[in-house]
Nucleic acid binder design. Structure first.
Length: 471
DNA sequence: TGAAATGTTGGGGCG
DNA sequence: ACGCCCCAACATTTC
């Protein structure tokens, strides 16, 4: 029998910097091998042109090289994680498998299954915290219940953070690792090559953002100088105001601990607002863990039986950016074209689908889930239920965005609209937000008239939510 | 992390 | 000079 090892299972933590599972494995004082599984339980549900596979593949190419430099072999497997992980653990005589905890319901089921199988083999599954700073049940109310209101959660989060992270800074134990790896058994190094995308059923897509830890650090370096103005600039989709780091947080090419550390190092309003956004992320992660039912239904029971209109043609017009509301269509076209949408626009188009087109939020959520490069179940579901007024700490149902007013406020010159709706590129800022209202007739080059009348749809939405619902 | 409806105020035009 | 009206501009309430 070979020397026992520790197996580090990479999932959505595709980096080496400030990596909890890797650091935990180092402390176990056994040589280390790493593994990533292209999990067919997940991949089989995705289309062959899914952008995220290209992004992940680039992350893994870089990760494999980075680990190789530290003499850590990365096993890249294609199959069912539930089968592949225990099989590899047995083959390499792993005493423990270390991975970062994942709060998505299906991931929990998978990990529990792996845990039981490993346990039967005499191997331990060690689940550590990496995707968030403060794990699931570490920030609770005095009654021991999970928070459902953000502002109070944030306050408690900051107190707990100050207590647990006093003096914390990112560090590594690469010297210790180097010593451990001298005892790595030969068979652990015989890794199969990284399969190319077609081999696992996908095609390479061109991406707005490149995957990998180097690209992530570059984006971060680009963002930090803009941090002081973040709180102002972030609301304007035509400006370079937001961080553009969400996809890297999704795949773990950045350490969220490091980002919070950087935010706390900076004393200005921009940094404070950015930190708040990162805490929103923690909020939705823990919320999903405590309320997994929200994946399938509205959090608020009284809104589970709303009589949505669900017009399939309207849904398609929304998806393809043909609603006749320029800001909505520009945003939806940006999403389809690039897999990205600015946060302000996510709120506007979500409000429009739910409150103007009277469509079940779950269909909008599903569209975002399929399109977004940075798709994260907890954040996406939380955001949609917030916009639809069906979630925890959601906006009140009567708070309905006016797509024209929002457009005038946050894209005043129509710069963003013109970028994605070329039919309207010739229009002035006076008419571009609502071309149908123009006094003189204008040529809109086939751009459609508004699909619905906002004022009328707003009234219908109010009436819909006002109906007493069986609970 | 709204917007619309309604209420209040105050300046200016005007008889 | 004075009252009246109009209507921004702002504030408050309502959905």
């Amino acid at each position: 029998m070979n020397t026992p090892i520790t197996l580090v299972w990479f999932r959505r933590d595709l980096r080496t910097f400030d990596h909890t599972a890797l650091q935990t494995a180092i402390r176990r004082s056994l040589p280390i091998a790493a593994v990533f599984v292209f999990d067919t339980d997940i991949l089989n549900r995705l289309p062959e042109n899914d952008r995220r596979l290209t992004f992940m593949h680039d992350c893994l190419t870089e990760l494999q090289a980075a680990l190789q430099q530290k003499n850590v072999p990365l096993w890249l497997l294609h199959g069912r994680a539930e089968i592949e992980i225990p099989a590899l653990a047995q083959r390499l005589n792993a005493a423990a498998v270390v991975c970062a905890e994942d709060y998505e319901p299906q991931a929990i089921v998978r990990d529990n299954h792996v845990w039981r199988t490993l346990d039967a083999q005499g191997c331990t599954l060690v689940r550590v915290t990496d995707q968030v700073l403060l794990p699931k049940a570490s920030v609770m109310t005095q009654q021991g219940r999970p928070y459902t209101v953000f502002t109070t959660y944030k306050k408690a989060w900051l107190q707990t953070y100050a207590r647990l992270y006093a003096g914390w800074q990112p560090h590594d134990d690469w010297d210790t690792l180097a010593a451990l790896q001298q005892r790595l058994p030969e068979n652990a190094c015989q890794t199969p090559p990284l399969p190319n995308l077609p081999a696992i059923g996908f095609t390479r897509q061109s991406l707005m953002q490149q995957g990998g830890e180097t690209a992530a650090q570059k984006l971060l370096g680009d963002f930090l100088p803009r941090l002081p103005l973040y709180h102002i600039a972030r609301d304007f989709p035509a400006k370079k105001g937001v961080s553009y780091l969400a996809a890297h947080l999704r795949f773990g090419t950045l350490s969220v601990r490091h980002l919070v550390y950087l935010a706390r190092q900076t004393d200005n309003e921009g940094a404070a607002v950015w930190l708040s956004e990162l805490i929103w992320r923690e909020f939705y992660q823990q919320f999903l863990y405590h309320h997994p039912n929200v994946v399938h239904e509205s959090f608020r029971p009284e809104y589970r039986t709303l009589g949505w209109h669900n017009n399939p043609e309207w849904l398609e017009r929304w998806q393809t950016g043909q609603t006749g509301y320029p800001i909505v269509d520009a945003a939806m076209r940006q999403l389809a074209h690039s897999g990205y949408m600015h946060n302000r626009l996510r709120m506007i188009v979500a409000s429009f689908l739910v409150k103007d087109l009277l469509n079940d939020w779950r269909q909008g959520e599903a569209w975002f889930a399929a399109q977004l490069l940075d798709f994260d179940l907890a954040a996406n579901n939380g955001g949609w239920q917030w916009a639809a007024s069906t979630g925890c700490d959601a906006q009140p149902y009567f708070r309905i965005f006016n797509p024209v007013t929002q457009s005038q406020k946050f894209d005043p010159d129509g710069t963003f609209i013109k970028r994605y709706v070329p039919e309207l590129a010739h229009l002035s800022k006076e008419v571009i937000h609502a071309p149908w209202k123009a006094k003189t007739s204008i040529n809109t080059h086939g751009y459609p008239p508004p699909l619905v009348d906002h004022a009328a749809q707003r009234e219908k939405a109010l009436a819909l939510f006002n109906q007493p619902q069986p609970t």
